[in-house]
């Protein structure tokens, strides 16, 4: 049995979500839970980690174009072939009612997929982006949550400021039993601190440079944990033990660099 080997699939559908954000759908019949990720092989270019943005049989990843591999993927069309390994990682634990989701940028990808799965009308999503043009998945979120609050760093839409500041305002007024967050690590660090202040458990989904995806190459290590295998979702107790959380990550060579 070879499980950790790329399965070649055809891109069945692509959809532009926003400027430089595209969803790629493909058929891949392994069971995937929200918060897990795939290693996506773009033949001849690279293999990169991508959260599952759709977890039924018609799977999907939603990609932001930021560099060589994602640009190459953006050029691919329906019928083109990519390799999929996984799913990897633990995924989110099904949260207790009532949930506050806090997502920044592409962090909305696993968050929207989880909100859609649990379908709790009383949960609330705080979604922050740099600017209005970078907002996506809005319709999808509105279908699964009663409330969506948006912030933009430049004030072009919704609350003018950071998602973490907006989340703080929300927490001052409303009660929650669980916080789920994904986005820039500085933001997630602030959310972890808010969770502590308001005594609400937090689950956060982390990103680190990945190679093997199966917990042996050590490139996604953070203080003895491996994001590919022990994560990418960690709870507040574990996050507080990670001295590098919100401060340092490692580049492709393993050097510890500031976030």
């Amino acid at each position: 049995m070879r499980t950790n080997y790329p399965k070649i699939v055809e891109i069945a559908e692509t959809k532009s979500e926003a400027k430089d954000i595209k969803t790629f759908r493909f058929r891949y019949n392994k069971k995937v839970s929200t918060g897990q990720f795939f290693m996506v092989w773009i033949p001849g270019i690279d293999e990169i980690p991508m959260s599952a943005s759709y977890t039924d049989n018609f799977k999907g990843v939603t990609v932001e174009k930021i560099g060589e591999a994602t640009s190459a993927l953006f050029k691919m069309k329906k019928g083109d072939k990519i390799g999929i390994r996984g799913p990897y990682g633990n995924g989110f634990k099904t949260p207790k009612d009532r949930v506050l989701f806090v997502a920044g940028g592409t962090g909305i990808i696993p968050v929207a997929s989880l909100a859609e799965k649990i379908k709790k009308k009383n949960s609330l999503i705080v979604f922050g982006a740099k600017t209005k043009k970078e907002l996506f998945f809005i319709k999808r979120i509105k279908k699964s949550c009663s409330k969506l609050l948006i912030s933009t760093d430049d004030g072009s839409f919704g609350y003018h400021g950071f998602a973490s500041d907006l989340a703080k305002k929300v927490l001052e007024k409303e009660k929650f039993n669980q916080i789920i967050t994904c986005g820039p690590e500085i933001m997630m660090k602030k959310i972890l601190d808010l969770g502590l202040e308001y005594k609400i458990p937090v689950q956060a989904s982390l990103e680190r440079y990945m190679k093997c995806g199966i917990g042996i190459c050590d490139s996604c290590a953070i203080n003895g944990y491996h994001v590919c295998r022990d994560g990418p979702v960690f709870d507040d107790r574990t996050l507080r033990k990670m001295r590098d959380f919100g401060k340092f990550k490692r580049d492709a060579s393993g050097r510890r660099v500031r976030i």
């Binding site: 070879r2 499980t3 950790n4 080997y5 190679k211 492709a252 060579s253």
Partner: peptide, 11 residues
């Protein structure tokens, strides 16, 4: 930095 991915596979 090492080689580009894929760098580890199961056979």
């Amino acid at each position: 930095k090492g080689n580009k991915n894929p760098t580890v596979l199961e056979t």
